[in-house]
Every structure is written in structure tokens, then in C-alpha cells.
Simulated assay, not measured.
Amino acid sequence: MFELQKRLPNYEIGTVDKFQGQESPIIIYSMASSTPEDAPRGMDFLYSPNRFNVAISRARALFILVGSARLFEPDCHSPSQMKLANPFCGYLEVAKCVI
């Protein structure tokens, strides 16, 4: 995050928590993990529907999700994990993907 702030000094950069209650024309949401297994805080945090909803709802015009394709192929071991990953997989179905 600090490198982005250095390179893009005129833009607001921060976590989902920082932007709660604010809006922006464009939101770029980085998953910051290559696979669900690599997520330091686990699937609950990586796929948190509340955090995802906050991020999407802050964008007035454009929402960009940046992440590895592997994040959309989680190895779910329970219905609760499937429920966590579902909004991201649903987003992929309706999003215009650029690889």
C-alpha cells in the first residue's frame, strides 16, 4: 500500500475499512493473495461478504477487482466456505474480465 501511495500521491489509497462511508468514481479492490490457501487470515477474511459489499458499494461508476484466477477456484470443504466464495464467483460471471 505504501508503494502505491508513493507512486500515486493524488489518489486515496487504503483498506476497505478506511473507505467505509465514503464513495469514489472508481474503486480498485485488490485481493492481495494468490490463492485461498495463501491468505494469512484465511478464507473468512479473504472472502468476507461484508468487506466485498463495502468495496463494491463505494464505487459510483466502476469497480475493478484485481486478483489471481486461482482465487475464483477455491477448494471449499464445507457449505460455509462455499457461501463465502459464492459472491466472488458470482461477480466473475457478470464481470468483464481482462487478463
Rank of each mutant, 00 (worst) to 15 (best):
I13E: 08
I13P: 06
K18P: 01
F19S: 11
F19W: 06
G21C: 02
S24D: 09
S24H: 13
I28D: 04
Y29D: 08
S30F: 11
M31C: 09
A32W: 04
A32M: 15
A32R: 08
T35K: 13
T35L: 05
E37Y: 10
E37A: 13
D38F: 08
P40D: 03
P40W: 01
R41P: 03
M43E: 09
M43P: 09
D44G: 15
D44R: 12
L46I: 05
Y47D: 01
S48E: 02
S48F: 02
S48Q: 00
N50E: 04
N50R: 07
R51K: 09
F52D: 03
A55P: 03
A55D: 07
I56M: 12
R58C: 07
A59K: 08
A59H: 07
R60W: 00
F63A: 10
F63P: 05
I64T: 13
I64Y: 14
L65V: 09
G67Y: 03
S68Y: 01
A69F: 03
R70V: 00
R70Y: 02
L71Q: 04
F72D: 04
P74N: 12
D75V: 10
H77V: 09
H77M: 11
S78P: 04
S80D: 05
M82S: 13
K83P: 00
K83D: 09
L84V: 07
A85Q: 03
N86I: 05
P87S: 02
L92D: 07
E93F: 08
A95L: 10
A95E: 13
K96H: 00
K96C: 00
